[in-house]
Amino acid sequence: MSKMNLLQAVNHALTTAMEQDPHMVCFGEDVGHFGGVFRATSGLQEKFGKDRCFNTPLVEQGIIGMANGFAASGTTVVAEIQFGDYIFPAYDQIVNETAKFRYRSGNEFNVGGLTIRTPYGGGIAGGLYHSQSPEANFTHTPGLKIVVPRNAYEAKGLLLSAIRDPNPVLFLEPKRLYRASVGEVPETDYEIPLTVADVVQEGKDITLLAWGAQIEYAEKAAAMAAKDGISCEIVDLRTLLPWDRDTVAASVNKTGRLLVTHEAPITSGFGAEIAATIQERCFLSLEAPIARVCGLDVPYPLALEKEYIPDQYKIYEGIKRTMNF
């Protein structure tokens, strides 16, 4: 074990996977010698050479298009999109190509070797275009897997699983926690299975469901609620597509209440999908309507970022409203 931040854990996972697979490549804007604008790919070019870790021209649709083709040969590739906000020029390649390769060819071809890494989320004074959480733009696309780690330990284990999963994976990294999340991470190779949610904290009164950076706010809100004698169970969904309905339903059947929180705008956010599914599965156990504490239906603002974020205070108020229903 050694102390690592989330970036170092990502770097560790990439190094581990590249050491094991001699054909695996990593590419994207500035990822080569410079090691990426956040330094997630630091040292990879030195270690594995320019053929296996390199800068691409500045063209996201090209990055994912080239990664699709590379993966279609049966080879493993991790493509980096510098910010989640800049993934949209590649939307066509991801939604119409990556996600449908296997299905449209009757499994003659697939791009299961592709993992797309991209930083997402706000809280870093990034304004409109360095703050967005685009997960729900992709959860509507069958054929993709979508994974979001909450800390350094989870990032390494989930990224290794994502890279080795025989399906294309979109791996969204909470950039607010890149350096802030520091923890013990094994030096060894380990995987955290996809589509298995994690009960971060057990409780009996209400389930708080989140993923990525939002887990931190859920934990703080749970601590506030604990002072009022409210016992929160916190579940990290980890994989959004396909998601672990059983773990969430079991938790809600136990607590009788659910609050979902995400940073992306509330309308058509992934919380809506969870609420719909859980009210079907847990209707008779529910003691209150499923609550959502989410981003607002506005572009992500700069000066009023603090007001925008669904922080622990907003979650805490949501918990109280649900408990007092």
Binding site: E29, D30, G32, H33, F34, V37, F54, N55, P57, L58
Partner: peptide, 11 residues
């Protein structure tokens, strides 16, 4: 340069 990427790696 495009951030760190020199033009001979750009085109």
């Amino acid at each position: 340069y495009a951030i760190s990427t020199p033009s001979d790696e750009q085109f």
